[in-house]
Design a protein around this nucleic acid. Structure first.
Lengths: 151, 151
DNA sequence: ACTGAAACTCCCGGGAA
DNA sequence: TTCCCGGGAGTTTCAGT
């Protein structure tokens, strides 16, 4: 190999290609980045094994799938907020798509998706009754203006 | 086909499968949902044509890719906020991963990813100088506690 | 069901430590 | 020399009609 930085540049190019089309063939990727198909596969497998690539997925139009409503819920907790506790308490809620602990006044940002306003309401209710949550602040998404893959 | 609701249930099962593994073969999906491979392909192509499936992509570990910093920026604008304007003004910023107009006190939620604190700072600065933004409220992500595919 | 193509798996060659 | 990485061909499976 030439050096590490060059290798990372190749992997980065491969990932960039896969971000655009996760079903691209190894040959297509190879042509784009200047490698043979088996070489690309080896690198992809390595990145998978190292966890740099978590897996492959499909990009779904949430509206078409009936998840017509989406929102960000900031939660404010009393006392200590451990990631493990958040995972245990919010993990079972299917409408909860992402939870991140954050800096600032809120303790965590919860991203939720639901198919009806009633579902939003009950989901926020479930969040409120969990994990020492004392307050929530919900912002409903009206429309996605920009959405890049790989977020 | 039997009827629309049954078809949607099958499509939903196919999508669910693809969410877990975007590179699953049509045969694997067919075995899982009780269809032949060509039948699965027909349905996937249809969903692609209708935009229900936007495409395929790879799930990347942001940390491994060097996007070690992530944040949510709420923006508050003066006057009218049109999605088209937001797209035009924030689209060119590469660190901006998602922009959604939202209800509540903020006008839009901007999701950003960056590789350094300096990049975060300059990105927020660029956002502030755009689109009649009069105020921003930034929450940096400390850790992702829950992350489901297909968000 | 059939054809073409892609994935997967060897083994080999070359370059660096 | 030894190890690591990329290239190439054969086999099997999958994609596309």
């Amino acid at each position: 190999m030439l050096n590490d930085s060059f290798m990372d540049a190749l992997n980065r190019a491969i990932v960039e290609r896969l971000l655009l089309d996760g079903r691209a063939t190894y040959q297509e990727i190879g042509n784009a980045v200047g490698l043979s198909a088996p070489a690309v596969k080896r690198r992809v497998d390595l990145m998978l094994a190292r966890g740099e690539i978590a897996g492959f997925t499909v990009r779904v139009d949430p509206q078409a799938m009936g998840w017509i409503l989406e929102g960000y819920v900031e939660i404010f907790c009393s006392g200590i907020v451990s990631p493990a506790m958040l995972e245990r308490e919010l993990g079972p809620i299917p409408e909860v798509v992402r939870v991140s602990t954050v800096t600032g006044d809120a303790d965590a940002m919860v991203h939720i998706m639901a198919s009806s306003m009633a579902e939003i309401e009950s989901t926020v209710e479930r969040i409120r009754t969990a994990a020492h949550v004392v307050k929530t602040r919900t912002a409903l998404v009206m429309s996605r203006v920009i959405d890049r893959p790989g977020a």
